[in-house]
């Protein structure tokens, strides 16, 4: 049944996100074309500037919008009137939750790919990629790891960070359903509460980790003396913390889906 639930989750989110993807690509093509003739006419130059601003705004908003669409789908499909149908389908709570998580992940990847493509179409990215490559090389050297490790770690960092926020809001919405009134308001309140709790847990865990690895680590970082092994351990540890938080959020949401309170 997971496949079927996923099919409809992907379709529904796609209906909201494909227009954004189309807008990004079309705008990127227009920008590229305008760029070719921009220096020939002042008016075109103004239009180009305006379009570029709009494009940057759209690029900045794209991931936020993708995040919003994932949250909206979760709330609408599970806890609004539509929830009466979703929860009377012969489907397990875990299938519903796993499907919502996978679809949020799929569209994070899709939006990221479209953003990179749009950027490559819109402007000459060879310089940007050169700067990025240099940055990666510097980081790889100071961390004593290969370039590909830096790339993989960065991608993992983005994915884990994004997914932990998605699941945090899923859990917040799910906890909001415990209340008999103002469920939407309580969903927001619970999401904020979870955010602060997760921040406190992360800081405490990091502190514990630093003490365990090397209490002088902070001094070493302050004095700009690199401590690559320790830093690598801390990065891996922060990944583990994110994974644990994701697990806790999943358990909270799953538990609430098993104990529905659709009034």
């Amino acid at each position: 049944m997971l496949k079927k639930v996923l099919k409809y989750d992907l379709q529904s989110m796609g209906k909201s996100l494909f227009p954004l993807y189309a807008a990004l690509i079309i705008m990127a093509i227009i920008l590229r074309l305008l760029n070719l003739v921009a220096d020939k006419l002042v008016l075109i130059e103004i239009i180009y500037g305006f379009m570029l601003l709009l494009f940057v705004l759209l690029m900045v908003g794209a991931l936020f919008y993708t995040f919003f669409i994932a949250i909206k789908r979760y709330y609408k499909n599970l806890f609004s009137n539509e929830g009466y149908l979703t929860h009377t389908l012969p489907v397990s709570a875990s299938s519903l939750l796993v499907s919502k998580t996978i679809s949020a992940f799929v569209y994070l990847i899709a939006t990221s790919i479209v953003m990179i493509l749009a950027l490559m179409i819109a402007i000459d990215t060879s310089q940007i990629f050169e700067i990025l490559k240099q940055g990666i090389e510097i980081m790889a050297l100071s961390m004593k790891v290969s370039n590909s490790t830096i790339i993989i770690f960065s991608i993992l960092f983005i994915i884990l960070g994004y997914m932990s926020y998605v699941l945090m809001v899923y859990a917040g919405i799910s906890l909001g359903q415990i209340h008999n009134n103002n469920k939407l308001v309580f969903s927001v309140v619970w999401s904020i509460v979870l955010y602060y709790i997760s921040q406190i847990i992360s800081i405490v865990m990091l502190g514990v980790m630093v003490v365990l690895i090397n209490p002088e680590l902070i001094d070493m970082i302050n004095q700009n003396s690199p401590a690559p092994d320790e830093m690598n351990q801390i990065i891996i540890f922060s990944f583990i913390t994110s994974l644990i938080l994701i697990g806790i959020y999943y358990i909270i949401s799953h538990n609430r889906l098993k104990h529905l309170n659709l009034q």
């Binding site: 929830g83 009466y84 929860h87 529905l260 659709l262």
Partner: peptide
């Protein structure tokens, strides 16, 4: 009705 349908516990 909601209890029978599992929409409430």
């Amino acid at each position: 009705i909601k209890l029978i349908n599992g929409l409430l516990m």
